[in-house]
Write a protein that binds this DNA or RNA. Structure first.
Length: 507
RNA sequence: GGUCCUGUGGCCGAGUGGUUAGGCUCAGCUCUGCAAAAGCUGCUACUCCAGUUCGAACCUGGACGGGACCUCCA
């Protein structure tokens, strides 16, 4: 097996991947906070880690992939002291139980993940299901002296921690800079240091989600859930932890501090971070309000203001979406995302999507051609070399754009063999099929648009019959009729291609 | 204000100190009754200025532009 290199945020370098206990690999990715619908920027992160997961599996690793669901503890304006739990707030506003909020959005989340063909993780733990683990971890951190209790709240002592450890090891920021250059904060309340963060929060009387703890009724802080759950399922030290880049300076920095505070060991060998998705050059985020939803992209329509849900199967739509000329198939969207490396920003636009979709269709079409390719005694093309290039691309920090470029080379070979301008042996055709199946389908997780097989088979016979009539018309030089047939078929969505050996068609 | 990232052809996007991915678009050609599809060819870029070097889009310094983080965010 060739060496796999991946970019480690800790070292800011590409490093060779060495699993702690091969063939097993522990992978943890920060999942969504289910207080509203996932937007397409969230989807990009999960798509990127889906590729990483799939490629590790393809290489033969036994991966335990843990992706959490945050259903409690994620506060707004935490530092201002006015923090309200995001889920709790939505529950209050909508007059629902917090778990109803979570249920609603988790349904939509799963549906979108499935549409994008993102594999489910091995374990998808929720924060609310691991309150005990979080309390235990918090207790241990207090015992070790890295956290303190004030009036029912527990805070992590960053100052104490950084005397023995590099708090900013992941972000590359030094503590003094962070202390001096934080924006003005009001309501610094009772914390000893301004960078201290909550492990446990005392619940105000109106707070809905609350649990008993040694420090009174309250709820866990946001960062502790990932430490507690990754430790529980992957151990004190595991291989890979991932998430969006925006989690580096706070969430992941604090996770490392908590784990070290807990057991003295840094929890993760490789930190992987995906870049942001932008819209006209600006980061897509809920706070900026420039988000659009997967269902809008997949339909080209705008979500109605009174839609009960943004879950694709349940959404109510209202009119054309201003950003998109048409509906984009989820697989075309996935392909579009993979044409950019996961550590680069990805700018979304209608034009870029259109371009990707066309390329994607050609690639899928070439797979059909591949399956009926004529074999020769000799090959004029080096398929083995192409296969190596595909592995090289993926082994170089999961470089899907280069992988895709290689697949387009394969496409050219296929078409040229089909045109009898090049030749391949049966063995090489088999190798090419394997190349497509391995990389296009297994690793990149792309698949052809699903079609009802019964419909297709009936329709196929009908179209073949019509094309038979058209061939007769052509033979009689009745081009008016043959063109009319062709135009009508195009109107119906059937594209006709006249080759030397008769006509073929595709939907 | 501080820290960091980034600037590639009409568009999207890889990339390495020396031979300049790939996709889309556009034009021409081949094929074709005409188209479409497919193939071939062309349009050949690296923000600007200076430096290092035999040689830089790639290294260094500066300028200008864009972005991220420092507050919740994938």
């Amino acid at each position: 097996m060739q060496a796999l290199f991946l970019y480690n945020t800790l070292s800011r370098k590409k490093e060779e991947f060495k699993a702690i206990n091969p063939p097993f690999v522990g992978l943890y990715v920060c999942g969504p906070t289910l207080y509203s619908d996932v937007h397409i920027g969230n989807c990009r992160t999960f798509t990127s880690f889906d590729i990483i997961y799939r490629y590790l599996l393809h290489l033969g690793y036994k991966v335990r992939y843990v992706r959490n669901i945050t259903d409690v503890g994620h506060l707004e304006n935490e530092d201002a002291g006015s923090g309200e739990d995001r889920i709790g707030k939505q529950a209050r506003l909508k007059q629902l139980e917090p778990m109803e909020i979570v249920q609603r959005y988790s349904f939509g989340f799963r549906e979108v993940m499935s549409l994008l063909n993102i594999l489910p993780p091995s374990i998808e733990p929720t924060a609310s299901g691991h309150i005990i683990e979080q309390i235990e971890m918090t207790q241990k951190i207090i015992e070790k002296g890295y956290a303190y209790v004030i009036d029912g709240n527990v805070y992590f002592d960053v100052d104490k921690f950084s005397k023995e450890n590099n708090y900013g090891i992941l972000s590359g920021r030094n503590l003094d800079d962070q202390l001096e250059n934080t924006r003005d904060l009001d309501g610094q309340d009772e914390k000893r240091g301004r960078l201290d963060f909550a492990l446990w929060k005392k619940a105000k009387p109106e707070h809905i989600m609350r649990w008993n703890s040694p420090w009174g009724e309250g709820f866990p802080g946001w960062h502790i859930e990932c430490s507690a759950m990754s430790k529980k399922y992957l151990g004190d030290v595991f291989d890979i932890h991932g998430g969006g880049m925006d989690l580096i300076p706070t969430h992941h920095t604090n996770e490392i501090a908590q784990n070290i505070g807990f057991c003295g060991a840094a929890p993760v060998n490789y930190w992987l971070h995906t870049n942001m998705l932008t819209l006209s050059g600006q980061k897509m985020s809920r706070s900026l309000g420039n988000v659009f939803l997967p269902v809008e992209l997949f339909t080209g329509m705008k979500l109605a203001d009174d839609s009960p849900s943004a879950t694709p199967s349940q959404a109510k739509l209202n009119g054309k979406h201003p950003l998109f000329d048409k509906a984009f198939d989820p697989m075309a969207v996935r392909f579009f995302m993979l044409q950019t490396h996961y550590r680069s920003t990805l700018d979304f636009s209608n034009d870029a999507l259109m371009a990707s979709e066309k390329g994607f269709d050609r690639l899928m079409e070439s797979y059909k051609t591949l399956r009926s390719l004529p074999a020769s005694n000799v090959s004029s093309e080096d398929i083995k070399a192409l296969q190596n290039k595909c592995y090289e691309a993926m082994n170089d920090d999961f470089n899907t754009p280069v992988l895709i470029a290689n697949l387009f080379d394969a496409l050219r070979i296929i078409n040229s063999v089909n045109d009898k301008k090049s030749t391949l042996t049966q063995a090489d055709i088999g190798l090419l099929k394997k190349l497509y199946e391995d990389f296009l389908f297994d690793v990149m997780g792309l698949k052809a648009e699903e079609q009802n097989t019964k419909t297709v088979s009936v329709l196929g016979k009908v179209v073949d019959m019509v094309l038979g009539l058209r061939t007769k018309a052509k033979a009689d030089k009745n081009f008016a009729l043959s063109d009319e047939i062709r135009n009508k078929l195009i109107e119906a969505g059937v594209e006709v291609k006249d080759g030397k050996d008769g006509s073929s068609w595709k939907i």
